[in-house]
Write a protein that binds this DNA or RNA. Structure first.
Lengths: 191, 191
DNA sequence: GTCTATATGTCGATAGAC
DNA sequence: GTCTATCGACATATAGAC
């Protein structure tokens, strides 16, 4: 109850505030001054917990990865039928995107702000997208629709492209308009 | 030859330099000081030609829209067969993306840096993506594969999602790996 | 561990000479 | 139309008291 209660902990408050600001505003436009002001801590306290702004961003991405995947898995695992589990990827988008004010994927947004593909932050983006593609492949593999392994990998890849495209379009148009069509296209592809 | 020759014109040099830096580095991370230094002009000269950094960004997006569409149309119009014209959308990606160092779509990258959907810059992004979707719809309509208008609109939407997804994936992985699969998927969808 | 005060630099934008 | 010099604000990061 003392050190376990992190809700009032400075480190946690800083990370929560930074996560909100980085996601809603972007990385470079969000200054350390704004983070510490809205977190209600002093500047030196921030630099006691985090060595730099970039380290704070890395912590943000780590936590974001955990949170986002738990949201996704929670939606998928509500379904028992393997086909419905796969299709629920898009149902997840229909819930998540409006709920996040159509700000889109935190990792793609950050990648736009870090052009160097070798940067530590860009490698985290790759890790996140690798995990997403692995997850989609697992869902596709459980369908057992095709005897050829090669086809299921390609099918999973197409579904991933539709998934990313749906996120992007919804971000630009602030709408979930195309997601239903994407889900029905996947339904036809696997039947 | 005097005022027509814009290659040495300050305004043109500024816009060319800013276009390169905004695209390669991002908007917020690129300072006016860097733009004028690399363009070889004085700061006051910049503010004589452009009222603000944001106006410079708007000029960048206008020119980028013209340039990018002419590249796309040039690739498409090399083909006479209507089906090949549609599929050449993805051939275009295979040429353009490696050539741009896998920096992806200038408009999506800018949108990540401007969260407010009502901003002037975000409206230009919508204009650009509207034009792209209209173009894809035109290519699909010429196929005359389906009697139902509704299906061609949905098909064009799916192709657009695959197109956006392919751009995004190539940006993250610095590769054109999935584009061939996307093109073949479209080939099957329209047959 | 948290505070105030500060260091050092760069940001976007302007003034005024030429 | 282009220049140098400069403005006030804010950037990231530190020093030193408590």
């Amino acid at each position: 109850m003392t050190s376990q209660n992190l809700s009032g902990d400075s480190s946690t408050k800083i990370l929560q505030t930074a996560s909100r600001l980085f996601y809603e505003q972007g990385y470079h436009v969000t200054g350390i001054n704004q983070v510490i002001a809205e977190a209600g801590v002093a500047k030196a306290s921030f630099y006691h917990h985090f060595s730099s702004k970039e380290e704070l961003c890395i912590a943000y991405l780590h936590k974001r990865h955990e949170d986002w995947f738990s949201w996704l898995q929670q939606e998928v695992e509500q379904n028992e039928n393997d086909q419905e589990r796969l299709l629920s990827l898009f149902t997840f988008l229909e819930r998540w995107l409006p709920n996040s004010n159509f700000r889109g994927c935190a990792f793609l947004n950050i990648a736009s702000e870090f052009p160097s593909p070798d940067s530590k932050i860009r490698l985290l983006v790759v890790d996140h997208k690798n995990a997403l593609q692995d997850y989609i492949r697992q869902l596709v593999d459980r369908l057992n629709i095709s005897p050829k392994k090669k086809n299921t990998a390609m099918l999973a890849d197409l579904i991933y492209l539709l998934f990313e495209g749906a996120i992007t379009k919804s971000q630009i148009y602030q709408s979930t308009g195309s997601i239903e069509a994407a889900r029905e296209a996947v339904r036809q592809l696997i039947n």
